[in-house]
Design a binder for these strands. Sequence first.
DNA 1: TTGTATGCGTTATCAC
DNA 2: GTGATAACGCATACAA
Lengths: 340, 340
Amino acid sequence: MAVPNPSSIEPRRPTLADVAAIAGTSVPTVSKVLRGGTDVSLAMRRAVMAAVESVGYAPREPRRPDSDAPVLLDFVLSDVHGSWANQALTGVEEAATDAGHDVVLTIARGDGTWVQHVLRRRSAGAIITLVDPTSAQLAALRAGGVPLVLIDPMSRPPSDVASVGVTNWDGGRVAAEHLLALGHRRFAAIGGTRGHRYSRARLDGFQSAVQQAGGGPVLVEHADWRREPAALVAEALLDVPDRPTAVFACSDLMAIGVYEAARRLGLRIPDDLSVVGFDDVPEAAWGSPPLTTVRQPIAELGAAAVRMLLRVRTGRLAAVPREELATELVVRASTAPPAA
Amino acid sequence: MAVPNPSSIEPRRPTLADVAAIAGTSVPTVSKVLRGGTDVSLAMRRAVMAAVESVGYAPREPRRPDSDAPVLLDFVLSDVHGSWANQALTGVEEAATDAGHDVVLTIARGDGTWVQHVLRRRSAGAIITLVDPTSAQLAALRAGGVPLVLIDPMSRPPSDVASVGVTNWDGGRVAAEHLLALGHRRFAAIGGTRGHRYSRARLDGFQSAVQQAGGGPVLVEHADWRREPAALVAEALLDVPDRPTAVFACSDLMAIGVYEAARRLGLRIPDDLSVVGFDDVPEAAWGSPPLTTVRQPIAELGAAAVRMLLRVRTGRLAAVPREELATELVVRASTAPPAA
DNA sequence: TTGTATGCGTTATCAC
DNA sequence: GTGATAACGCATACAA
């Protein structure tokens, strides 16, 4: 929002003093927060972060290119469990090493202390994924001079933060088109966590394609990306008269949960039920039957994030970059035409 | 012991105030140094440390030997693919974070440049796994003052390098005992990479138990820890007259390969063939049927390595530590008595 | 009480 | 001068 400026006050770039005034503290304390110092209370830290965000403080120089000291990049994620994180990590590590940088792994726990860690270490840049940082946290990191790239953000990212992602909506559509082409008409879909952006996009793409083809409504439930809840939800969705003949799970792990539900209900895959997953983690190919799924280029995603980070770090870019990598359907043995 | 107090000088335990007086500073500053706070100059930090030493100050409760800036530990592995690396990473990360340290992930590529990386960064310590460092590399790291801990070394480690591992030989035995108790007598086993220490140990344990029970010879092949080669090797081992009724795979991933071989040969698990794996990665529980396997406490292994590294780093230890964590049989549905 | 920890501002300093 | 950082100690809260 443009603030009208009736008086003689010139809209100069905000300083730490401005931030301090709003946060109700001193300039050194603001500085301390932005440098990741220890002697600041959580409340004060939050107040400063909020003030930083509200005045849009940004450091004058993005950061010393810091010529030849070995550069450390932070890879921040909520946890390293699971194949997705694993693959992303591989991609990040490889691209970083190729560029001569090392990667610090930072696990973002709920308390938000990871922000201090990154700030304190004067990180040369952070790649953030599987975490939903608050806008105040993002603002603090930027104000601290840490270049950022988000991978597949959970929420809509602030418009001034770079990000990479995949064509989630498109992937959902492709999954639906495949099943429609096989002749399916009754569908169920299992989303991840309600409100996660990529879950929404995948489901929307799926539903959009189904509707466009004049297919019936899609029964949708959510299972927080986890296997066991997906199995429970799938069991409920499938244990009805006139049950769906095909299920779209928004992750491979949840698709494995659907396999389990099918086993419990005595449904054979793909004869009685077709299943499509999303991600194409290695396990997808090992299942019985091997899973038809929408492939994300996960490692490439990590590599792309590193390359983007290095661009953000060095050059100041005209526009905030946003890159989308294509998803791709991988047809294996878990899908077939519906039983007559 | 009750100390009588004849003179006026009472030998009481030193306090922070004493330290502060000698260091020529305030009590809070001393406290900050001991707590690893940020707002202390290097000179003051040193003065305080010296004073602490001279008066022999000791905290009431033992405290983390922080005293210095937050520290970066290196976790070096050959690649981060696979659940094993994933779980180990989780354990390492958690233990390091709990101790207030960050983890740099270093992938050891064949060229050995990782050693330079670690040395140049003056790493505070390195945990090495899934890599077989040459003795020259280990010597270089030690000469560079980098404390080391190996996790489950591939070769016999030099006697002056600390390591943690699991009871591999024992695990092999337990697998065999389980199958013997079910009534199996004809066995095959699939090793990892020929020459890897833990592969050897697992196979030896297995064979030792079989022989002790008077069982027949165990047919052994190697498959480099990978799924597809394991499938091929298993197919060959099982496609013979009087085929084995049970297979021991030295990793879960290879056990999944055995599942595939069984499918190709039309053998049902566990009716026609019992399978035991090793590791107990999450996927083991998802297979159909869920895999009976020898569990390694992988994350604990990583955590133990971190704790050992911190001990090696700070205290000088009497002996070179070597720690072994116990393996444990997890019985699921892939084993049953042999068909009559 | 005495000992210790925390959080903030003050003062000094540095880079333009 | 202005904007920012560095490092100390004061005031206070907390603990045995």
